[in-house]
């Protein structure tokens, strides 16, 4: 296993150039055409996208969904990861609880939310039996429902990096903080959270990129009324047969994701100095 093994990367490299690199370049090339018939080279598609308030709304709603999902997942994921590190005897159980949903089909988990939030679902039944409501509440097909369902789908991807981050903190530092008179909350704010920043950033990256491109959950829980970028791409390509515009929407989504990923990576490099420096 010496220097001569480098050639082993060639097959996958060729595959990725052919079936990831070239396809993405093709989308970019197609997005630079002005009409569905692929005539006229220009950036009319992008102008069309950004000059229309509806399109800008779809982009903003998608990004907002990503942010909401990330915030919910930090709030719920941090305590679970903290518990995992603090309670060694529960680790096997907790890891099972985190990994099972991660490996369970997204369609299945989304379907569960349709059942929970539907008119005859768990929440409406409970509320009706408690006598709190007469007619079922409309929970499904609302932006809040999409954010909650999405948060559940992505939660394991926040918990796993946080477990690594919290588990890596030297217990002596926490002890020192307590001995020096800082309370639990102050230690959390001044010691634990700053040391978790790399884990938080990794989790944010995974959750955000997952949430903004999760077609199935967005369409099944959001219904036809709420539009997000992934379904918009599909709709323009397959239903409207407007490949150049579909390609524009795809490139806008891709560029937005790449921008956010590079910001998070830059922050990550800075925060690594925090932990090791």
């Amino acid at each position: 296993m010496s220097r001569t093994t480098t050639w082993l990367t060639a097959p996958l490299c060729l595959y990725f150039v052919g079936f990831v690199g070239i396809p993405l370049l093709l989308i970019f090339f197609i997005s630079l055409h002005d009409t569905p018939a692929m005539t006229g080279i220009g950036i009319k598609g992008y102008i069309r996208f950004f000059s229309d308030a509806y399109n800008r709304g779809v982009l903003l709603d998608t990004l907002l969904l990503g942010v909401e999902t990330t915030v919910i997942d930090i709030l719920l994921g941090f305590p679970v990861a903290y518990l995992y590190v603090a309670a060694p005897r529960w680790r096997r159980f907790l890891m099972f609880m985190v990994l099972l949903p991660l490996l369970t089909s997204t369609v299945v988990r989304t379907f569960a939310w349709v059942v929970i939030l539907g008119n005859h679902g768990l929440i409406n039944t409970l509320l009706a039996q408690a006598g709190l409501i007469g007619t079922p509440l409309r929970l499904l097909y609302t932006p809040g429902a999409v954010a909650v369902a999405m948060a559940q789908i992505e939660l394991p991807l926040m918990i796993l990096p946080l477990i690594t981050a919290i588990g890596g903190i030297d217990a002596h530092i926490i002890e020192a903080s307590h001995v020096l008179g800082a309370g639990r909350w102050r230690t959390l704010r001044r010691i634990v959270l700053p040391l978790c920043v790399p884990g938080l950033l990794t989790g944010t990256l995974l959750v955000f990129t997952g949430a903004v491109s999760a077609l199935v959950t967005q369409t099944l829980v959001g219904g036809g009324q709420l539009a997000f970028m992934p379904f918009y791409i599909y709709q323009q390509a397959i239903q409207a047969q407007d490949y150049p515009f579909a390609a524009c929407v795809a490139i806008v989504l891709l560029m937005t994701i790449l921008l956010i990923v590079s910001i998070l990576n830059a922050l990550g490099r800075r925060s690594a100095g925090y932990v090791h420096g």
Binding site: F19, P23, L24, I27, T209, V212, P230, Y243, L254
Partner: peptide, 15 residues
């Protein structure tokens, strides 16, 4: 892992 697979799907379809 980060590229939306919808975009990749569209690209491979075009190819």
């Amino acid at each position: 892992l980060t590229i939306p697979s919808l975009a990749l799907g569209l690209g491979i379809l075009v190819l």
